[in-house]
Nucleic acid binder design. Structure first.
Length: 646
RNA sequence: CGGGGCGUAGCUCAGCCUGGUAGAGCGCUGCGUUUGGGACGCAGAGGCCCGCGGUUCGAGUCCGCGCGCCCCGACCA
């Protein structure tokens, strides 16, 4: 075994051919990334030679069967293919079992994640899923998460929670084991099950109640340190998604219940997504619609005119109002009544949110504008009445004292709007903010396609997407809640600033399938395929020579460090080829009487359908090379290019 | 949490309206023929028809109450 060497301007870790075969895991990293910088996990001395892994599976023994028909419960193509391929099985709403194939894909994704986390200097830990409820009460999130947090009691009636995430636990762990600034910076990560009692699980593996998350937490002495840790995780995430064959785009996001300031989501664009992302068609601005800043369409200009009442019988929607009066939606004011309930419990506050008629109230922005820590829900009819509001004709002018009015910034420069008159059947014309009514203003409207970009003046587009990962600057939210300090260099106390970083493992699995499939089935990215090679044997029970050839090749491939699934079943060729396409290993080899007689093995790349007959003696070498080529193609550049062009 | 749909074989479904004691295709098991893109024949296994209660001589079917699963919505008054 040779040591890493530099030569030329290009630096590479060099291994003997034997080592290459024996250490293909490491080799993957060598191929894709420059490892010559010092990285914590690399051994300081040559590692002892490992035994070949000989990872293989005979399909005759594989647990789980493919389905011929598309399961009706499948909501998306990816979900359907995973069910059909015998990868997953639903136990109950939002809870899935992973069969052997599905589990291998999961583990391969975890392997990619571990490599990149270790590479970035993060240290793996393992935190409990079972947690004392007091920890959640102390951070204030027991209330913030509400019913999403699974609660349970132990035999002594002590309150427990199943971990929905691990900020509390990791902060406590850090507090117990970090003593001085010399323990900073530190990034801890784990791959763990998370439990969230979602209101509505959906989309197969997209929103589930129990799932695997890689979560990482950084602790730094100051903002500059946090920025470095954040940037390091950000880069690691780009590589993880690229290597898993999932095209993602990083977008600005709201921090939600996790807390903190400044976060980005890695979004996989798909029509089955549950998030809406707006992005600029000119610059690279992209944001979750919950967060997106945008330039509001210009108002219809004019000098303020005297307010006058207009009778509008039965006209209770913006659309109807605009049609009835022959004006544009943006010449009206839209009112939304909500109840803001403190997440810590207590009485709700009635909120009267006003946006211009062409805009929509954004609940997340509104929640933040109200100071956070509140839960918003639509007002009940009884409450609407109780607070003296008139559904369909509510007016910000003379709104009841008890009701908290908040106005979108669009109202301030939009003159002469039509608003409700607080009297059924009547509206007011020429209502002017500032002159006729006043209220605190904030950005409480959702950006959408067609709006302007605040960065460059371009036009925003919108698409649906699914969040694959999320990186946050938590800052002091948790270290403050748990009063965590370490000894500083000057003998004083330093409160560490935190970041947290999450990836949904099964979402990556699901997105990888969605991004890489065709009518025949899955086309796994080489990095995360359950097996590297699918060997199909045709007519082996009728031909001794072909069978011996297949068995020998099966052994050779595994000895070369490849993970092989061997279809040794007594099935007709069509069944085997269709199953091979469906379960989707990246490379396929076919051994048959006719091939063995000709001294060849048929080789085919699943994703492209390209292939050739390889001379028997060159098969292993060719397959190793083909796999390497597939891995090399999974670069950040291609993934992000793919995400942009979709 | 509101609305809608659906629970019958491993999977996809029929049967329910009009009550009479359980079906099809695929899959599965055995035997035979077949063998390069989801073959064919023969023989089989497999179901408390989601649960409980009611109506009835009799309930998969009708009624009630649950439970489960899926979808839409949960903001634009």
């Amino acid at each position: 075994m040779q040591h890493p060497v530099h030569h030329g301007g290009e630096s590479r870790l060099r291994l003997s051919e034997t080592d290459r075969r024996l250490h293909h895991d490491l080799q993957e990293l060598v191929i894709l990334y420059d490892l010559t910088e010092s990285r914590p996990y690399l051994p300081r001395y040559p590692a002892p030679a490992a035994e070949p892994k000989l990872a293989g599976m005979r399909m005759s023994a594989l647990f789980g069967h493919t389905l011929r028909e598309f399961p009706t419960e499948a909501e998306t193509p990816a979900h359907g293919l995973l069910l059909r391929g015998g990868y997953i099985d639903q136990l109950m709403s939002g809870v899935y079992s992973y069969l052997p194939l599905g589990n291998r894909a999961r583990l391969k994704i975890e392997r990619v994640i571990r490599e990149e986390m270790d590479n970035a200097g993060a240290q793996e830990v393992f935190l409990p899923a079972l947690q004392p409820i007091e920890l959640w009460e102390q951070s204030g999130r027991e209330a913030a998460l509400g019913d999403v947090l699974f609660h349970l009691r132990d035999r002594r009636e002590r309150g427990l929670a199943l971990g929905a995430t691990h900020e509390e636990v990791v902060t406590r762990l850090f507090q117990d084991h970090a003593q001085s600034y010399r323990d900073l910076p530190a990034t801890l990560y784990q791959i763990q099950r998370k439990f969230r009692d979602e209101a509505r699980p959906r989309g197969g593996l997209v929103r589930v109640r129990e799932f695997t998350m890689k979560d990482a937490y950084s602790f730094d002495a100051d903002d500059a340190g946090l920025d470095r840790s954040y940037a390091s995780m950000f880069q690691a995430y780009r590589r993880i998604f690229a290597r898993c064959g999932v095209p993602t785009v990083a977008v600005e996001a709201d921090s939600g219940a996790i807390g903190g300031k400044g976060s980005q989501e890695f979004i996989f664009f798909t029509e089955y997504g549950e998030d809406t992302i707006v992005y600029c068609d000119t610059c690279d601005y992209a944001a979750n619609t919950e967060k997106a800043e945008f330039v509001r369409p210009a108002a219809v200009a004019g000098e303020p005119l005297p307010t006058e009442e207009v009778e509008t019988p039965g006209v209770t929607t913006i659309e109807a109002l605009a049609t009835f009066l022959g004006i544009e939606a943006k010449q009206t004011a839209k009112a939304v009544f909500l109840m803001a309930t403190p997440t810590k419990g207590g009485r709700g506050t009635p909120v009267f949110a006003v946006v211009r008629g062409d805009l929509d109230v954004n609940e997340v922005k509104l929640m933040n504008a109200l100071g956070g820590n509140v839960e918003l829900r639509p007002m009940l009819d009884a409450e609407v009445e109780e607070y003296g509001l008139v559904a369909g004709y509510a007016s910000p002018i003379g709104a009841p004292e008890r009701v908290r009015v908040i106005a979108d910034i669009s109202l301030a420069d939009s003159p002469n709007l039509v608003a409700g008159a607080n009297r059924a059947g009547w509206h007011l014309r020429n209502v002017n903010f500032g002159r006729d009514w006043q209220a605190p203003t904030a950005d409480i409207a959702s950006g959408k396609a067609g709006h302007g970009c605040t960065r460059c003046g371009g036009t925003l587009q919108s698409s649906r997407g699914i969040e694959m990962g999320h990186v946050f600057r938590l800052q002091y939210v948790y270290t403050k809640a748990f009063n965590v300090n370490v000894l500083g260099a000057d003998g004083g106390q330093v409160m560490p600033t935190m970041g947290c970083y999450g990836i949904g493992v099964e979402r990556v699995l699901s997105a990888a399938v969605e991004a890489n499939h065709d009518d025949g089935g899955i086309c796994w990215p080489a990095s995360i395929a359950p097996y590297d090679v699918h060997m199909v044997g045709i007519g082996l029970d009728r031909d001794e020579a072909a069978r011996a050839d297949a068995e020998a090749l099966y052994g050779e491939l595994r000895a070369a460090g490849l993970d092989v699934i061997f279809d040794d079943r007594d099935e007709r060729p069509g069944v085997k080829f269709n199953d091979a396409d469906l379960i989707g290993m990246p490379l396929r080899l076919t051994v048959s009487s006719r091939n063995t007689a000709a001294g060849v093995v048929e080789f085919k790349v699943r994703a492209t359908g390209e292939g050739e007959n390889l001379p028997r003696a060159e098969v292993v070498e060719s397959v190793v090379a083909a796999r390497r080529a597939l891995l090399e193609a999974l670069t950040v550049e291609q993934a992000e290019q793919r995400a942009r062009t979709r």
